[in-house]
Simulated assay, not measured.
Amino acid sequence: MKPAGGVSQRRRPPLFTMSAKANKTLIGLFVLGALALGLGAIVALGSGTLFTPKLRCIMFFPNSVSGLEVGAPVLFRGVPLGTVKGIRILADPEHLKFYIPVVVEILGGRVELSGPGPKRTVETLLQARDTSPADLLRLLIRKGLRAQLVTQSFVTGQLAIALDLMPDTPERLVGKSDLVEIPTVPSMFEKLTKTLEKLPLQELVDRLIGAVTGIEALVNSPQVKRMPAKIDTALTSATTMLEAVKSQVNPLAHMLEITLDAYSGLARNVDRRADGLAAAAISAMGSFDATLKDARGALGNFQKIVNANSPTVTDLNRALSEIARAARSIRELADFLERHPEALIQGKGGARK
């Protein structure tokens, strides 16, 4: 069949022809390799957290979170445990209060156990408690777990969220989310701001201005202006006095030296005499010891003499008895002579006829 116009059209051959059919096995291997590479890249980029259990929780901040961004770290006593995933603003239409809900994602299995490793059958706190991450987090909240904004860098002003156990702080919950809520506490900057707000700044400023005014009046007073001249006069007097004292120092030093020499000689004399006195004292002590020995001997002899059974006492008693009888005889004689004085002439027998 020829087309109109008598020009015949020929069928052109294809530019490219397949020399062989595609190998299905090679294509399958290529796809599997690509999937393996993609999975490895995901695991590498995820820092090994792809298969780590995660828990999303929420915390409500009543004040500004300026400086906190999505991706900011969540720290527990300085150790990263998660990241910030969302920041919104929430309003309470009834009381016209505003909150900043911050959603964070906490990685499980980051808190390991202490003690020897070979004796443990579990490696993390979550495994040891044998509970869900949400229940473990609620238990920590009852123990005092609180969230607080902290500064990452004072240069950039970036913030992070710090978690810690603060059992002395109140458990303030908003409760407007299905996620587990971690109570928040004011940051250090907020505490400092509240402390400054309680200070009577205007009164302090007024007192400071009054103090500065008083100092200025004191500095400009005539007494202070005359003070340099008085100080100059006092310094001149002090210089004169020091010169006078200096002139007396040399004689005093000479006299002190003489006194010290005399004292040294006296000390030497005392030492020499002390030696002689010590010898005399030793000799006197020896004599005194001999005297004590003699006194002890005499005392012993006296005790022997005064003993009731000693011969001396017996003889003394006999002599005293005889003396007593003689005294009685003399007394009787005296009585008789007093009655008969003529007996001295006539005798005891009377007058002889």
Results as ranks from 00 to 15, higher is better:
G6C: 02
P14E: 02
L15D: 05
A20T: 05
N23T: 01
L29I: 07
V31D: 01
V31M: 06
A36G: 14
L39R: 00
I58W: 00
S64K: 13
G67A: 01
G71F: 03
V79M: 05
L81W: 10
G82R: 03
I89V: 15
L90D: 14
L90P: 00
A91Y: 14
P93R: 09
F98K: 13
Y99K: 05
I100H: 15
V104A: 11
E105G: 03
P116N: 08
R120H: 08
T121R: 13
Q127C: 00
Q127G: 15
T131E: 13
P133R: 08
G144E: 04
A147K: 07
T151Y: 03
L159Y: 02
L159E: 03
P170A: 13
L179H: 03
V180K: 01
T193F: 03
T195Y: 07
L196F: 11
E197T: 04
K198C: 04
L201S: 02
E203H: 02
I215N: 14
Q223E: 15
K225E: 14
I231G: 02
T236S: 13
T239G: 05
T240M: 05
E243L: 07
A244R: 12
M255P: 00
S264Y: 10
L266Y: 10
I282Q: 13
L292Y: 05
D294R: 05
R296L: 03
L299G: 04
R325I: 09
D335K: 08
I345D: 12
Q346L: 14
